[in-house]
Simulated scan of single mutants.
Amino acid sequence: MDIPVRTISDLHAEIIRLEKVKQQQEMDLKQRFNSPSNIFAIVKSIFHKPGDPKNGILDQDLFGLLSRVILPFTLNKTLFKGSGFLVKTLVGLVSQKASTYISEDSVTGVWDKAKGLITGLLKKKNKPPEPDFAKAAPTA
Rank of each mutant, 00 (worst) to 15 (best):
T108D: 02
A134W: 01
V87Q: 09
R32L: 15
S106T: 15
K49M: 12
S67D: 12
L90S: 04
S99A: 15
T89A: 15
V21P: 00
G116C: 08
I57L: 15
S45E: 09
F40D: 08
E19A: 12
G109I: 00
L86S: 10
Q96E: 07
K115L: 12
G51A: 11
D105L: 14
K113C: 05
V21G: 04
F80G: 09
K125H: 14
V43C: 12
L11H: 13
E104C: 05
G64L: 07
I57D: 09
L75I: 01
P50L: 01
P129G: 07
S95K: 03
F80V: 10
E14L: 10
S83Y: 04
P128V: 10
G51P: 06
A114P: 00
E130Y: 06
I46L: 03
P50S: 07
I15M: 12
F63G: 00
Q96V: 03
L71M: 15
L75C: 07
L122W: 08
T89M: 15
F47N: 11
S103W: 06
K115P: 00
D59W: 01
K125M: 15
A41N: 09
E19I: 03
T89G: 14
S67R: 04
S103R: 09
K97H: 00
R32P: 02
I3M: 09
A140S: 10
P129A: 14
I70P: 04
S35V: 05
I118Q: 05
G84T: 03
K135W: 04
D61R: 02
N55T: 09
A114F: 13
H48E: 11
L90R: 01
S95Q: 01
I16F: 05
